[in-house]
Design a protein around this nucleic acid. Structure first.
Lengths: 151, 151
DNA sequence: AATCGTAGTGTCAAATAGTGTCAAATGGTG
DNA sequence: CACCATTTGACACTATTTGACACTACGATT
């Protein structure tokens, strides 16, 4: 296994009638084994949601608190820290995502769960398709850059 | 064999009921002997998939992480790094390609596997026929260029 | 305080997806 | 043609994901 890939891979998952999101087994395993955690802290991010291992979340909170008082610190507290909620896995590996967060990310039936290094993103499927498509256009505009990176 | 050609050659392979792709023996041998690897990291690329030896993948990741923060770095992370998954060979030399990647490249039954120096491309057969045909047209448009190259 | 409705929890079991392996088919090589 | 390595299809098995439903907690309404 490539070291330090942390969370990676992309998965289409479904959300049940009551708003529970299935988290892929591989992420749960990584959480258990690397982060010793049976839960995840979920918050808002750019129109979607992100889930962090609790230990990672604590670091993020500390970083925000270390900011000098001012509107940036306030905004981080209001829009990232405040909406965050810890979610436990149930026996089937699903987490109950609170309604306010589901509303924010427009989660209903089909979602995409994506490993992103030390965090896990959760998107509405259409929203994700849109941003991914935009990213692809950007990459295609600059083929030389892609080649330089080794792709 | 011309030395240092790394992966080369083009192969029609089939994909089994469960989405496993046969990787030609010659590529597996190259991976084992040159890259000391029994796996490959697969990700999306221009409508098809690419597979890299894990050591090569680590370099690419490092290159992306070294980019200045900005939309290009973001796009690379989102569309190249995040969807990537490591795939191990089974006893028959097949790799299980995750569903999201199969969906992206529209892989069902027949695929084309192509050696490209340090990477291996995997295409839907029709998709590949189409881009190959377009490339051929481009070359024919420029016969002088072909001659200059020594072809 | 009793009733109702809504949201969330726990759990089961069906459906789906992935793994391991065997053996037949294929294709290249001498 | 005969041999050998490789590829392929198939099947049984295991793991994971999903839909469903009964149940609980809680807040609002009367």
């Amino acid at each position: 296994m490539v070291s330090n890939m942390n969370f990676s891979g992309q998965f289409n998952v479904s959300i049940d009638l009551k708003g529970r999101v299935s988290v892929p087994a591989t992420f749960r395993e990584e959480l258990r084994e690397v982060y010793q955690s049976e839960s995840v802290v979920v918050t808002t991010f750019k129109g979607g949601l992100v889930a962090y291992p609790p230990s990672r979340w604590a670091e993020i909170c500390a970083n925000v608190e270390a900011l000098p008082a001012g509107p940036v610190k306030e905004a981080n507290r209001r829009n990232r820290i405040a909406p965050a909620q810890e979610c436990l896995f149930n026996k089937q590996g699903r987490i109950q995502v609170p309604q306010s967060l589901r509303d924010y990310a427009d989660l209903q039936k089909d979602a995409v769960v994506i490993g992103m290094f030390e965090k896990i993103e959760i998107w509405n499927q259409q929203t994700h398709a849109k941003i991914s498509h935009e990213s692809e256009a950007l990459l295609e505009e600059n083929a030389q850059g892609q080649a330089d990176l080794g792709f």
